[in-house]
Amino acid sequence: MTTPVLLSPEVSAALADWLAHLRALDGASENTIRAYGADVARYLGFMARHRGGTEGVAPLAALPVADLRAWMAHERDRGLGARSLARALSAVKTFTAWAADRSGADATAVLSARGPKLKRRLPRPLSEDGARAMLDDVGEGARLPWVAARDTAVVTLLYGSGLRISEALSLTGADHPLPEVLRIRGKGGKERLVPVLPAARAAVTAYVAACPHEMTAGEPLFRGVRGGALNPRLVALAMEKARARLGLPASATPHALRHSFATHLLAAGGDLRAIQELLGHASLSTTQGYTAVDAARLMEVYEQAHPRA
């Protein structure tokens, strides 16, 4: 087990200031800040051990590439995967750029370092039948009728509008009754307009009618049993139970419903640019991942129809 290293007061203060800087940026979630903070703290601790003592901010920003490679090798040795290491390197570069700007150090070596090559992961949507079955079944495991209506409303909205779970749970009583087109604030504070299907509006209306908690403009639309904001983990748990009953794969998660929305829309002839706008993707290349999923499914159908001799 590696012995923890205390950072110098200067470096500790710099790390705290950088995290405060991230918090001030629009779209930097608390989960992202915690992950980046942990990654950079481990990096700084390694450098203190590797270089034989704590250093100031300027020398750390101007480290040679050999030291950075030593840190990356250490992270791989402790079992960090390529994707996690890429995230950690991104955090280190972000911190280093900020530190270099403050101290005037030359951070070229660190900022130009290349991360591990990542194999692009394809989205894992449900089939159309699987998505329908999830919507029909997700409320079956609830002990209270209004909770069943709530869970059904949430997953119907995720699948019907392609929302992230955080976006759905950020809706308030002011959003009810849901309009035909909903304005959503997504990652980075970017706003987009998404259509709300009649089935989703009906599901939310049924939930609100059954919910024992008063719906006011300033309160969350989706509530927990005690009346507070609904924990996203409870939605995931309801889907876990439903997929076990339905025999669906472990990839049938709340986020998979967003993938399913995009994939099924594309399969029905949807325009890729329009789907990009509906999902709120900053880059078209992210949305293009769904074309690969569609092609993969097409080949799967082809192989089943034309098995090799």
Rank of each mutant, 00 (worst) to 15 (best):
116 P>H: 09
138 V>L: 04
121 R>I: 07
145 P>F: 01
153 A>H: 13
137 D>P: 04
130 G>W: 03
130 G>M: 11
116 P>V: 11
150 R>W: 00
114 R>K: 15
135 L>Q: 13
129 D>R: 11
153 A>F: 09
145 P>K: 07
129 D>T: 07
154 V>I: 05
133 A>Y: 10
131 A>Q: 06
116 P>L: 06
136 D>R: 12
145 P>G: 10
133 A>R: 11
152 T>W: 00
153 A>G: 14
154 V>C: 06
148 A>I: 01
133 A>T: 05
119 K>F: 08
132 R>F: 06
128 E>W: 03
139 G>N: 09
113 A>C: 12
138 V>W: 01
141 G>H: 14
137 D>I: 07
147 V>F: 02
152 T>G: 15
146 W>R: 11
148 A>E: 09
143 R>K: 07
143 R>V: 04
123 P>T: 07
138 V>E: 02
134 M>P: 04
114 R>Y: 00
148 A>V: 03
129 D>M: 06
119 K>G: 11
151 D>F: 02
137 D>R: 14
115 G>D: 07
118 L>P: 07
113 A>M: 14
125 P>H: 05
132 R>V: 14
117 K>Q: 09
150 R>K: 06
131 A>P: 01
144 L>E: 15
131 A>H: 07
136 D>M: 08
125 P>I: 07
152 T>M: 08
134 M>K: 05
131 A>E: 15
138 V>M: 02
141 G>C: 12
133 A>E: 02
132 R>E: 12
126 L>V: 06
117 K>T: 03
154 V>Y: 01
127 S>R: 13
125 P>F: 02
112 S>R: 13
119 K>H: 11
149 A>R: 15
145 P>I: 06
128 E>R: 15
145 P>D: 06
131 A>Y: 03
127 S>D: 11
122 L>S: 11
149 A>N: 10
137 D>H: 12
149 A>D: 02
114 R>I: 06
149 A>I: 11
142 A>K: 03
132 R>Q: 15
134 M>C: 05
151 D>Q: 10
137 D>N: 14
125 P>Y: 15
128 E>D: 05
154 V>W: 08
137 D>C: 11
140 E>N: 12
148 A>F: 01
121 R>Y: 00
136 D>N: 00
140 E>W: 05
150 R>S: 08
154 V>N: 02
136 D>H: 09
150 R>D: 01
150 R>I: 09
122 L>D: 13
131 A>V: 14
128 E>P: 00
129 D>H: 04
122 L>Y: 11
153 A>R: 07
118 L>D: 00
139 G>I: 03
149 A>E: 14
113 A>V: 10
145 P>S: 12
142 A>N: 04
148 A>T: 01
126 L>A: 13
115 G>T: 03
125 P>W: 06
152 T>K: 15
147 V>M: 06
146 W>P: 05
144 L>Q: 07
150 R>C: 04
132 R>C: 08
146 W>L: 07
128 E>T: 13
126 L>F: 04
123 P>A: 11
140 E>A: 14
116 P>T: 12
152 T>V: 06
117 K>E: 01
119 K>I: 14
136 D>T: 14
118 L>G: 00
122 L>M: 12
151 D>M: 04
112 S>G: 10
140 E>V: 12
135 L>W: 04
133 A>G: 13
149 A>S: 09
124 R>M: 02
122 L>Q: 08
148 A>S: 15
112 S>H: 11
129 D>L: 13
112 S>F: 00
141 G>T: 09
